[in-house]
Design a protein around this nucleic acid. Structure first.
Length: 535
RNA sequence: GGCCCCGUCAUCUAACGGUUAGGAUACGGCCCUUUCAAGGCCGCGAUACGGGUUCGAAUCCCGUCGGGGUCACCA
């Protein structure tokens, strides 16, 4: 039952690595691991007009980041393998040979129709509301003499698959079972383009066959062209692998996930401070579930329960809000050293990218409210974090565990690494642009603020920060003082918080003071008093 | 529009043909609290609709409706 599967992910290098690629790669990786098989990365670079030079490198990095490395793939980025080359542009002779074979067998033919003719044809068909839209087969029955004449005249041509005109074409899908398509509605698809490059259809079949792929796990958008693929395999006389059409990831409006409505670049998720294991977990939740309502799981746990046949094929909406929650869960489970290291890495990743991370004009911001807020915040936070890179790396270089004491204070406040920007700066600078409003919220008075600062200063000045139990002692002292003044502890510590952190929202105060040290804490209180004109 | 796929809370999903249709996110409330979080408790909230089959249907069948995908010398 579990013969080793050979599966592949086959992205085309046309831009940033896509979240859908990672989604397929996860299920590929699981299928290979579950069966003791192999996971292959094949680069489908047959479209020269859309080729982006550094895309392939990014795809590989993104898969590595997610821990979804292939077992076989282009040797420049990894393991290589016995079925190479793994880049379609390096396999051109194979496709030519395959196309020739089909023509020789009478299963394909040369077509000399111009793209102008094709376009006109399409327009007419659409205008006539014709049931059939597609190539009309004009060149299907060219005589050998006509073909020779065309070739002699140097006319460019494509090679088209010669499909049956009647009956039904049966295909099989792992999830949906047998599916029938009317042969008359299929068109003679192009196999070889006039530039000598293959189309997806030919290249996919030739390579999957040559690479001994057992399971074609791909997106549902391919379902309509599956009849062509089955007929192609049949024309060659090859064994047909199992086809499994995975659901499409969706935008909030249920349309297929797209750049304009949802972040689709894996690099975006990395930049925004999502943990690879959290994103991978989240992708695993899309269409699959573990027993006992378990939502947070390691790859090993996922694998333990994985069964390709149990995938839920209703198209899941990619809910960034839930990923945000899940990422927070993962961050909270990180130990302090790990979290600190990841924050430092994130800082380095973002350093020097201020221009790229500038605020977006309203018109370029996403429409959806959560995403819009997230993107605005994330850009601001990214700039702050990037700016901290130098200071952080310097401190860690001097003292490797310098950040450790801070981690417990911020860990449970983070949902992404980038959100550390909201809490970290106060530990590295005491120079704040104070405003009077911050010190004096509604219902409070300037005198009250000054008094609170002075009282707090007195308590702190009398306390040995290094003493055991310093935290509890300070807690108690602040509490007692607030009570003595007839105040609640919250409002009492308000001005102190602003003095110490420059913000009205911060990590817990007393713990923060202990991290800062007595001298720095007192200095900041004095600065604040000076600002309020009460030094 | 033709063809194809899909249809359980707003979202991700669970439920041998027999459950008060479960969990999670989000949202609301309460508790905890030093701000913000985190955490705890409670609440809101779904089997698209109509027919069958069956003692019994979210589950099987048909239809309707809805959503999506696809109709390139792109993948």
């Amino acid at each position: 039952m579990t013969t080793p599967a050979r599966v592949r992910v086959a992205p085309s290098p046309t831009g940033d690595p896509h979240v859908g690629t990672a989604y397929m790669a996860l299920f590929d990786r699981a299928m290979a691991d579950k069966t003791g098989g192999r996971f292959i990365l094949r680069i489908e670079d047959t479209d020269r007009t859309r080729y982006v030079a550094d895309s392939e490198q990014k795809i590989f990095e993104a898969l590595k980041w997610l821990g979804l490395q292939p077992d076989e793939g282009p040797p420049e980025h990894g393991p290589g393998g016995p079925y190479g080359p793994y880049r379609q542009s390096e396999r051109l002779p194979l496709y030519k040979q395959a196309a020739d074979e089909l023509v020789a067998k009478g299963r394909a033919y040369k077509c000399y129709c111009t793209s102008e003719r094709l376009e006109t044809l399409r327009k007419i068909q659409q205008a006539e509301k014709s049931k059939f839209v597609g190539y009309d087969g004009l060149c299907r029955n060219l005589t050998p003499e006509q073909i020779a004449a065309n070739d002699a005249a140097g006319k460019p041509h494509v090679v088209r698959l010669k499909l049956r005109r009647e009956g039904t074409i049966k295909v099989h899908d792992l999830f949906r079972g047998e599916l029938s398509f009317d042969a008359a509605e299929q068109q003679d698809a192009v196999m070889l383009k006039s530039d000598g490059f293959p189309t997806y259809h030919l290249a996919m079949a030739v390579d999957d066959h040559a690479m001994k792929i057992t399971h074609v796990i791909r997106a549902e958008e391919w379902l309509p062209s599956t009849p062509i693929h089955f007929e192609l395999y049949r024309a060659f006389g090859w064994e047909i692998p199992v086809f499994a059409h995975m659901p499409l990831l969706r935008n909030k409006d249920k349309s297929k996930i797209s750049k304009r409505k949802n972040p689709t670049s894996l690099l975006w998720y990395r930049d925004a401070g999502f943990l690879p294991e959290a994103l991978r977990n989240f992708l695993g939740l899309m269409g699959f579930s573990l027993p006992n309502d378990q939502e947070i799981f390691t790859y090993q746990e996922f694998l333990q329960h994985f069964d390709l046949a149990k995938v839920n094929i209703g198209g899941p909406i990619f809910d960034l809000q839930k990923l945000h929650w899940l990422n927070g869960e993962y961050i909270r489970r990180l130990d302090d050293a790990d979290l600190a290291a990841r924050i430092v890495e994130q800082c380095k990743l973002l350093a020097g990218r201020e221009a790229e991370l500038a605020d977006l004009p309203e018109s370029e911001l996403p429409q959806e409210t959560f995403l819009k807020d997230f993107e605005q915040k994330r850009r601001r936070q990214s700039r702050i974090l990037g700016g901290l890179a130098g200071e952080l790396t310097a401190r860690v270089a001097k003292q490797p565990d310098a950040l450790l004491p801070i981690m417990p204070l911020i860990k449970e406040r983070l949902h992404t690494l980038v959100e550390a920007a909201d809490y970290l700066p106060m530990f590295f600078t005491g120079e704040f642009a104070f405003t009077r409003e911050a010190f004096v919220p509604k219902k409070q008075t300037p005198e009250g603020a000054v008094q609170a600062l002075k009282e707090a200063r007195a308590i702190l000045a009398a306390q040995d920060f290094a003493a055991p139990g310093a935290k509890d002692a300070l807690d108690a002292a602040f509490r007692a003082k607030a009570e003595a003044l007839g105040q609640k502890i919250g409002p009492f510590l308000g001005p102190v918080r602003v003095a110490l952190t420059g913000a009205t929202v911060s990590p817990p105060l007393v713990e923060s003071m202990l991290v800062l040290g007595k001298a720095e804490t007192l200095r900041r209180l004095d600065n604040a008093l000076k600002f309020l004109g009460q030094a």
